[in-house]
């Protein structure tokens, strides 16, 4: 069965059609990449799936349940985790407390006024830290972390409520190339172990071709191709958009890094 089913998703901003009649499925345990040049509509697509934007038309179903009009925090509770293009962490808390907060919220203990937050769900939080190999940094202030570590922390936070679907918008943006590979390998490993399905956007084609099971290509709001890495590489339309169209991979990347997360 498909975890996510997107049908006819459309969003206009004024006269601009940012996302135009996009449909796709995401299977159980699948690692699906959504690529496309700058401004193709990837982030907009994401934000419609996770509830931050309301589409003009179309449906999004998660395990058969309709997601349109559901608030982002409810969608999280339905099993959709997300990481941000620009990391968002609780900087005044330690690394492990960031994960504990996600667990506390997941277990609906956030209005508890008497327990000590730092003592709740410590074991689970430590297990998650081990998963991203950060157990030795548990007690550090998250404001002191290096950028790559912050990204790993975000991944652990997103995994805390044991999501069935993970949405990652440019998970490696702003990282050094070696770190990118490491992070995506880690993600791929976790996906395989836990059976999580992942939808991610990415500008680094090496990352995409190395890890994605399947690739969707978006251009000017519309899906122009879909297939495995081999098929996408050989697709003339995609080559046209990426190479003939003037946007080379390197440029696309540089643009992505300066851009702020829309959510």
């Amino acid at each position: 069965m498909n975890v996510l089913e997107v049908r006819g998703l459309t969003k206009k901003f004024g006269g601009l059609v940012a996302v135009d009649d996009v449909s796709f499925d995401l299977g159980q345990g699948e690692f699906l990449a959504l690529i496309g040049p700058n401004g193709a509509g990837k982030t907009t697509c994401f934000n419609m799936v996770n509830g931050y934007l309301r589409p003009d038309r179309g449906t999004v179903r998660l395990n058969g349940q309709d997601l349109i009009g559901v608030r982002p925090r409810k969608i999280v509770r339905m099993g959709v985790g997300r990481t941000f293009q620009i990391t968002r962490t609780f900087l005044s808390m330690t690394v492990i407390e960031n994960i504990q907060m996600a667990l506390i919220s997941h277990h609906r203990r956030i209005f508890d006024m008497l327990s000590r937050a730092t003592r709740l769900y410590r074991d689970e939080a430590e297990a998650l830290l081990r998963l991203v190999s950060m157990e030795d940094q548990a007690g550090r202030a998250s404001s002191e972390l290096a950028y790559g570590d912050l990204k790993r922390l975000e991944l652990a936070v997103a995994l805390a409520p044991d999501p069935t679907l993970l949405l990652m918008d440019e998970p490696t943006a702003g990282m050094a190339p070696s770190e990118r590979v490491a992070l995506m390998e880690l993600t791929a490993k976790i996906v395989a172990e836990r059976g999580v399905s992942v939808l991610f956007t990415e500008h680094d084609m090496d990352v995409v071709f190395a890890h994605a099971h399947r690739i969707l290509v978006l251009n000017r709001g519309g899906l122009i191709a879909e297939g495995t890495g081999e098929e996408i590489r050989g697709n003339p339309l995609v080559q046209e958009v990426y190479l003939g169209g003037g946007t080379v991979f390197g440029q696309a990347e540089a643009g992505a890094e300066s851009e702020a997360d829309h959510a």
Binding site: R73, R88, T89, S92, A158, P161
Partner: peptide, 12 residues
Amino acid sequence: RDSDVRAEAIGM
């Protein structure tokens, strides 16, 4: 206070 976006994203 630190990040309202993150707070919403963990379901608060």
